[in-house]
Design a binder for these strands. Structure first.
Length: 422
RNA sequence: AGAGAGGUGGCCGAGCGGUCGAAGGCGCGCGCCUGGAAAGUGCGUAUACGAAGCAAUUCGUAUCGAGGGUUCGAAUCCCUUCCUCUCUGCCA
C-alpha cells in the first residue's frame, strides 16, 4: 500500500498518476485518507496523554506503598479508574480509525510509473519489441497436436478433477520437467537462490503481496484451515521477508522458486480459451528480488533480459509489451509482459510478467532496509521465468515438423530426446 | 490426535504483581590498552506510532508469541488462541 505521508507530500503527482488507472473519485478518496490519518494522530496523542497520567499515578501509588504511607491513595485510585474508562473509549476510536485507514489504503492501487501509457485495456499496451512472424495456415494448434502425440490429456484431467487440470503423459511430462530444471539452472547461474516454499498461504501473506483483498475470488480457499492455494510463488517467496530489516550490504536478494500455481480464473473462460492457454493448475518458475530503491530499475531490466534470454533460447517468436494503466496489476508500478507466438492458433500468449512494486508490498509487509542508522522501505520485484503451459503450447506449435515435434536444443540434455514422434 | 513442558531483546537466559524495555552472559559496533593481535577494560547496542526540531537528537506512548480480562499498577495472575519441544498414537 501507498504510504500516507507520501500522499501528503506528493499529492498532485500521485493524484495525476492514479487518474491514469481510471479510478472513479480518486481525489476524494485520497483526501479522505489524509483526513483519516489526521484523526488517527489526534486520537493517538490524546490516548498517549491519558496513559501518561495514569502511569504517573500508578508509580506514585507504588512509591507510597513502599514508603508505608497509605493515606490519600483512594482519590488517586479513583482518578486512575476514571482515566481507564476514558482511555477505553478513545482506544476504541483509535482502533476503529486505524482500521478504516488500513482498509482505505488497501483499496488504492500502486502509483503507475510515468512511463506507463494511458489506456483502458490491453489494446493500449505498448509493444516494445516483436519478433517477425510468418503466418502458416497449415500449422496445427497444440490442442490437436497433444492428442495426436498423446503427451497431454485433458479428458483424463476432467475425470480426475475437472476442466483445466490436464494430465501430462510420457514425453509430455518429461518436457515439463526439463523446462523446470532448465529454468532453475539458468536462474542459479544468475545467482538466484533456489527456494521451495509452502504451496498454501495464510490470510496475512496473501494480503501483503496484494492478492487480498483485491483478488480474493481468484484463489482456491481451504475453508477449514483458512488457507489459500498459492496463485503464484510470488506470495510465499516474497513473504519470506515480512517484518524483516535487511542490511543494505546484503542486497539485492535474488530468489527463484518452481511451484505449481492454482487459479480459479472465474469468469475468464470462453471459446477463445482452449487447451493449455488457460488452466486452473499450472507450473511456473518465478524470480523474486528485494532491492535498494535506487537500484530497482536496474533489477527490473536485468529480470526482463533474463526472461527474454530464456524465450530466445527456446527458439520461439515473442514480443515484449509495456502494460498500459488499465492493464497494469493492482500492486504494480511498472510491468513488462512477454508473449510468445503460437502459430497453430495465430495467437500471442502471455508467458511472463515482470513487475516493479516499489514500496507497495514492502509497506504492507513491513520490510525495511537498514542503511547505517536509518531505515527505509525496500523495493520488491518479481517475474515469471517462465510460466510453463503457454511455453509448451508455443514450442509444440512452432516446432511441429512433419510427423514430429522438435525439442529446442537447449533442452536436449534435460529431456534425453530430441523430438517427439507418434 | 492425546498427555506434559514451554514461548522474554540478534542469540542464550534471569525475573513470577510495583519506578522493568526488562539483570547477567554471548554476539555486534566504537574507544582505551598493544609494535600489531589476543586477553583485559570502558561505552553503546529493539521496533512502531505520536510530539518538538533544518538536523543530530530529545520527550511521550505501546510492545516480554497474539487477543481479551482482573488490578491504581501485569513479563509476572485468569481466560481464549497460535506456535515450539518431549512422550504416546498415526503416517509419506
Amino acid at each position: 500500500m501507498i504510504e500516507v505521508n507520501k500522499i501528503r507530500d506528493e499529492f498532485e503527482n500521485i493524484l495525476k498518476a492514479l487518474k491514469k488507472r481510471g479510478i472513479s473519485d480518486i481525489e476524494n478518496k485520497l483526501q479522505d485518507l489524509i483526513k483519516l490519518d489526521d484523526q488517527r494522530k489526534l486520537f493517538k496523542s490524546e490516548i498517549d496523554k491519558i496513559n501518561n497520567e495514569s502511569n504517573t499515578i500508578s508509580k506514585d501509588i507504588g512509591i507510597a506503598f513502599k514508603g508505608g504511607k497509605s493515606h490519600n491513595l483512594e482519590s488517586l485510585k479513583l482518578r486512575s479508574q476514571e482515566l481507564k474508562e476514558k482511555s477505553k473509549i478513545i482506544n476504541g476510536n483509535l482502533k476503529e480509525t486505524e482500521n478504516k485507514l488500513r482498509l482505505s489504503l488497501y483499496s488504492i492501487p500502486n502509483i503507475p510509473d510515468h512511463r506507463v501509457p494511458e489506456g483502458k485495456s490491453d489494446k493500449e499496451n505498448k509493444i516494445i519489441f516483436s519478433s517477425v512472424i510468418s503466418k502458416n495456415e497449415n500449422l496445427k494448434p497444440h490442442w490437436d497436436l497433444i492428442k495426436e502425440f498423446q503427451i497431454i490429456d485433458f479428458e483424463l484431467g476432467n475425470n480426475i478433477t475437472g476442466a483445466g487440470f490436464p494430465v501430462y503423459i510420457g514425453k509430455g511430462a518429461i518436457l515439463q520437467r526439463a523446462l523446470i530444471n532448465y529454468f532453475l539452472d539458468i536462474a542459479r547461474e544468475k545467482n538466484y537462490t533456489e527456494i521451495q516454499p509452502p504451496l498454501l498461504i495464510n490470510d496475512d501473506s496473501a494480503t501483503n503481496t496484494g492478492q487480498l483483498p483485491d483478488k480474493e475470488g481468484q484463489m482456491y480457499k481451504i475453508e477449514d484451515e483458512n488457507l489459500y492455494l498459492i496463485p503464484t510463488a510470488e506470495v510465499p517467496v516474497t513473504n519470506i521477508y515480512k517484518k524483516k530489516i535487511i542490511e543494505k550490504e546484503l542486497l539485492p536478494i535474488k530468489n527463484v522458486a518452481y511451484t505449481p500455481c492454482f487459479r480459479k480464473e472465474a469468469g475468464s473462460w470462453g471459446s477463445h480459451v482452449r487447451g493449455l492457454n488457460r488452466l486452473h493448475q499450472f507450473d511456473k518458475v518465478e524470480i523474486v528480488q528485494i532491492q535498494e530503491n535506487s537500484k530497482s530499475e536496474d533489477s527490473l531490466n536485468e529480470m526482463c533480459d533474463h526472461v527474454q534470454n530464456l524465450i530466445e533460447s527456446l527458439e520461439i517468436p515473442f514480443r515484449k509489451i509495456l502494460l498500459c494503466a488499465g492493464d497494469l496489476g493492482f500492486t504494480s508500478s511498472l510491468t513488462y509482459d512477454f508473449e510468445v507466438y503460437a502459430p497453430g492458433q495465430d495467437k500471442w500468449l502471455e508467458c511472463s510478467s515482470v513487475s516493479n512494486f516499489l514500496t507497495y508490498q514492502s509497506n504492507r509487509m513491513n520490510l525495511k532496509i537498514k542503511d547505517g542508522k536509518s531505515k527505509h522501505l525496500a523495493h520488491t520485484l518479481n517475474g515469471s521465468a517462465l510460466a510453463l503451459p503457454r511455453i509448451v503450447a508455443s514450442i509444440i506449435e512452432n516446432h511441429q515438423v512433419g510427423d514430429h515435434i522438435l525439442i529446442p536444443n537447449v533442452l536436449h540434455k534435460y529431456t534425453g530426446f530430441k523430438k517427439i514422434s507418434k
